[in-house]
Design a protein around this nucleic acid. Structure first.
Lengths: 161, 161
DNA sequence: TTGCAATAATTGCGATTGAAACTATATAGT
DNA sequence: ACTATATAGTTTCAATCGCAATTATTGCAA
């Protein structure tokens, strides 16, 4: 393999490797989520997952979804969703209802308190996203970021099945 | 407020809002991390945090760092780091040493088993990052993503102090 | 030198997570 | 109809997390 060196740089400055975006991606995620959840907590509001569940349910036909559908739509594992819905039910934001025709199943249904809470969370969450995320991106960058994330999601999902 | 409508679209198709990149960012993170940690687990290797700690320590002068420095460099809260180092110490990958001149302090020091483990993890982690992340980005996109994440980190940190 | 705020690290505790096991019901193949 | 297999949802258990409180030490200022 002698001679296979690409552009030997004897004694020259170190080659500039393109820095990997991966570690920055991890750090940005952790810090943004930590900061935004801190802001929610400071206002006595629950965590992001609660908002996600409420958001998904509000858009669902009849504002209700089977547990497994909600699990998939909200990207929360089955067992975590069971417990999350337990807590949210205890807080009166959702209710469970039986499914006619499939006695294994359960619906998670949005309550009106849940609808209100969704708004209340958004009043803090929305501006927080704006302040810490959207605000610092050009429309161009937002679009690129969106595309990239979508592609990564698509690929990683494809690699499982 | 009558007349304040911007571009009324009576009966036309819904307006195209630019989709927010935020939810995709959250989902991409969760799915990528879940998938990559699954691959690590499948080979009997520990989670990403362990790698981060080993990586940071290896680059530190004398392969050791004060707990609070390591905490900052690895972006792990103080209390979580204490317990993470407990586990890693139990596994023989790092050791704690007293600090001369400050009896409150402790160093976390990389052991040779830790150095080996870092390599072993990287042999799976590196390719996994490539497979699920880097591989799907053009060099251009990687650079953009890196810049954006760096900027977001910078801004969110500035907003705390 | 004494007292008081700041710093380093750890710990306690309740909440949340992940993975595997479990229960109940539904569906398919024979 | 009968067994096997798949699906829905929950539960268990151990591991991890976030936060506030705690312990020990240091540095500073009166």
């Amino acid at each position: 393999m002698a001679g296979s060196n690409q552009r030997a740089r004897r004694g020259g400055p170190k080659r500039n490797r393109t820095p990997s975006a991966w570690p920055m991606f991890l750090i940005a995620h952790d810090e943004l989520v930590a900061r935004i959840e801190e802001q929610l907590r400071n206002k006595g509001l629950p965590e992001i997952n609660w908002y996600t569940v409420l958001w998904v349910l509000e858009r669902a036909p009849d504002e209700r979804l089977r547990m497994h559908e909600l699990s998939e739509a909200a990207v929360i594992t089955r067992s975590n969703l069971t417990r999350l819905v337990d807590r949210m039910e205890k807080a009166g934001l959702v209710s469970r209802e039986r499914v006619s025709g499939d006695r294994r199943g359960a619906y998670a249904c949005l309550t009106s308190a849940g609808r209100d809470m969704k708004t209340e969370i958004w009043n803090v969450y929305g501006p927080a996203i704006q302040e810490h995320f959207t605000r610092h991106l050009s429309p161009q960058e937002s679009a690129t970021l969106h595309d990239i994330m979508l592609r990564l999601i698509d690929k990683v999902r494809g690699s499982r099945s």
